[in-house]
Simulated scan of single mutants.
Amino acid sequence: MAAYYIREIKREDFDEAVQLYITVFSSEPWNDILTVNQVEQYFNQLYKMNTFLGYLLIESETERIIGTCLGYEAFWFKGSYFFIDSFYISNQYQGKKLGQFFMNSLEAAIKKKEIPTINLRTGKDYPAAHFYKQQDFSELSTYTYFTKEL
């Protein structure tokens, strides 16, 4: 059985992580139409933040990236929290408990940084919502998410 580990993302990891992002989010259920340039801009914008935190799930034997978490530490009157902007696993590794392993490892890494909370948003009807509930995330009924097209 293959072994896996997580580590913080480095700038030189972007090409592989961008390709994985495009592969995952171009597939069901998202079916996004993405370009390398768009996704590179997204990665670079997050990476430029002085509070950026990103992690990779790596398959030990091949050193391939099979999962990515991009986010940042944010500060609020109740203290800091880690906001997950993207969390994804390679399609061929989904359903094998690696998302759970990645999340557990991520939680340990965030806890070591003395960040007490993880926040994220996802579509209510996506499998990701079910995954996060299985990982003991709580759906907040006191907040709602708004958007406005301009």
Rank of each mutant, 00 (worst) to 15 (best):
94 Q>L: 03
132 Y>F: 15
52 F>H: 14
45 Q>A: 10
120 L>K: 01
146 F>I: 07
72 Y>P: 00
138 S>A: 09
111 K>N: 09
118 I>D: 04
17 A>Y: 06
129 A>C: 13
83 F>Q: 11
109 A>G: 04
149 E>C: 00
87 F>Y: 08
41 Q>I: 06
144 T>G: 01
2 A>Q: 13
50 N>M: 00
97 K>P: 02
3 A>H: 13
139 E>R: 07
147 T>A: 07
107 E>H: 11
33 I>W: 00
17 A>P: 09
141 S>I: 00
100 Q>E: 15
124 K>R: 08
122 T>G: 11
82 F>G: 02
55 Y>S: 06
68 T>N: 07
131 F>G: 04
38 Q>F: 05
59 E>P: 07
137 F>E: 06
92 Q>T: 11
126 Y>V: 04
116 P>F: 04
39 V>H: 08
110 I>A: 11
127 P>F: 11
91 N>F: 00
65 I>T: 15
8 E>S: 15
76 W>D: 02
126 Y>H: 10
31 N>G: 03
83 F>W: 14
50 N>E: 11
37 N>T: 12
10 K>Y: 01
143 Y>V: 13
138 S>C: 02
54 G>Y: 02
99 G>V: 04
128 A>K: 14
9 I>S: 07
96 K>N: 07
145 Y>A: 05
131 F>L: 11
75 F>H: 15
146 F>A: 01
